[in-house]
């Protein structure tokens, strides 16, 4: 299915000028985009999946708020919006670079990545970005519309907050991509990283604040999490959306987020160099 669309972009001719490099990455984004189109049902069902997630937490929180009006500064409508917006943006920033690398390793095709005249991490991230742009149109927006129609959600706290939120979500993508790439590099050494992938999945769900706001965590956890990139994936963007971060607070949050984008990508690059030095290619 779609074999012709999977064809790799042509090698850049005549040196690796910046324009050429850009064209190559643009091509990877396009390939990611077209590939994703080929999965028909996934987008119809993806919307349903996200709807189910939000519904589950809607009912749980509804049961909880029957007894109290406000918990940790969140009223029910705010918390519901927190949950819904969290899942909506997840449909954008989500990617499975780690899984893709694991599959390449299992099929013994990793060497193919190494001989391509591009930075491996950038190639994976660019392709994932292509997919994300696609999901934005076919998954994120429809999901947002449906959720907003069914559940009583709040609008963004203001134009400035909304702009900050969008920028923040864009950076979330790169933090997640960076983390996934790091996890993917472990695939090179392990025969089966399914367990590891699942552990990462649940770790991100919990510590990004997707399931429950970070401020609900015990004090010790909150302090520890402040030194980690996870809450900048979901908690921080949604706080900006809700207006729980304002003015300088937004700027500061975005700054730290930017730091984590570069930190995670740099870590991924370092891990890749380290791992690819001792690549063992399984089978033929």
């Amino acid at each position: 299915m779609g074999a012709s669309e999977l064809a790799l972009p042509a090698r850049p001719r005549g040196g690796a000028s910046l324009a050429n490099q850009a064209r190559v990455y643009a091509e990877f984004i396009r390939v990611g985009f077209v590939n994703t189109l080929a999965y028909r049902l996934r987008y119809y069902t993806g919307i349903v999946t996200y709807f189910i997630y939000v519904s589950i937490y809607y009912f749980i929180w509804k049961a909880i708020y029957e007894h109290s009006a406000k918990i940790e500064g969140f009223d029910f409508k705010q918390l519901l919006t927190y949950v819904a917006v969290g899942w909506i943006i997840r449909s954008f920033y989500y990617n499975n670079i780690d899984q893709q690398i694991a599959i390449q390793v299992m099929e013994g095709k990793l060497a193919m990545d190494l001989i391509k005249p591009v930075n491996t991490q950038f190639m994976y991230v660019a392709q994932a970005l292509g997919e994300s742009v696609f999901r934005l149109a076919l998954l994120t927006l429809p999901t947002a519309v449906i959720l907003a129609l069914v559940f009583p959600l709040r609008l963004p706290a203001g134009a400035l907050n909304f702009a900050g939120f969008m920028l923040s979500v864009f950076m979330s993508f790169f933090i997640v991509a960076g983390i996934n790439f790091c996890v993917g590099t472990f695939a090179i050494r392990l025969k089966s990283i399914l367990g590891l992938l699942r552990a990462k999945y649940f770790l991100l769900e919990l510590f990004s604040g997707l399931l429950i706001p970070i401020s609900f965590f015990p004090e010790v956890f909150q302090k520890a999490l402040a030194f980690m990139p996870f809450q900048y994936i979901s908690y921080v963007p949604v706080l900006i959306y809700l207006g729980k971060l304002q003015g300088l607070g937004i700027v500061k949050a975005l700054g730290i987020q930017l730091f984590w984008v570069f930190a995670m990508l740099a870590l991924g690059d370092a891990l890749w160099r380290w791992s690819s030095r001792r690549i063992t290619i399984q089978g033929g």
Partner: peptide
């Protein structure tokens, strides 16, 4: 159908 346009039509 081939290409981006075709992929969208196939949808």
């Amino acid at each position: 159908r081939e290409g981006v346009k075709g992929a969208i039509q196939n949808l």
